[in-house]
């Protein structure tokens, strides 16, 4: 059991590290011109948005409200910490009040 345990952990570690380093080395080999360049420049934003959208929509009405308020707060104040607190506070509040 113990040996199999470490074998699983090692395999998972190799796969994950391979993706981390592999992605970077692969990107280096892509040409940095034309379409490739525009693809790579757009990538950070589209990945981040992909991480947010399904999670924000899945939580229902209060999750949408909290996401909207977080976004507006961030846009107005530029303060990531404050915006996060607001979003988390709205979710916690709505659950405590039994709204969500």
């Amino acid at each position: 059991m113990a040996e199999a345990g470490f074998a699983v952990i090692a395999a998972a570690a190799v796969v994950t590290y391979g993706l981390r380093l592999g992605g970077l080395l692969l990107a280096q080999r892509l040409p940095r011109t034309g379409r490739f360049k525009r693809f790579m420049n757009a990538l950070p934003g589209t990945i981040l948005l992909s991480l947010i959208v399904p999670a924000a929509l899945a939580g229902g009405l209060w999750s949408w409200i909290a996401t909207l308020c977080t976004a507006l707060c961030s846009l107005k104040t530029g303060n990531v910490f404050l915006s996060m607190l607001l979003g988390v506070g709205i979710i916690a509040g709505s659950r405590w009040l039994g709204l969500a």
Partner: peptide, 30 residues
């Protein structure tokens, strides 16, 4: 979840997302 901490990750990413916005050219891709 009771403290809304599951939402913390979405909230942080949402607060950061505007820094990734490069202008109108991003409208359609986004």
């Amino acid at each position: 979840e009771r403290f809304g901490l599951d939402f913390a990750f979405v909230a942080v990413f949402t607060a950061l997302v505007f820094s990734f916005w490069r202008g109108r050219q991003d409208l359609l891709p986004w």
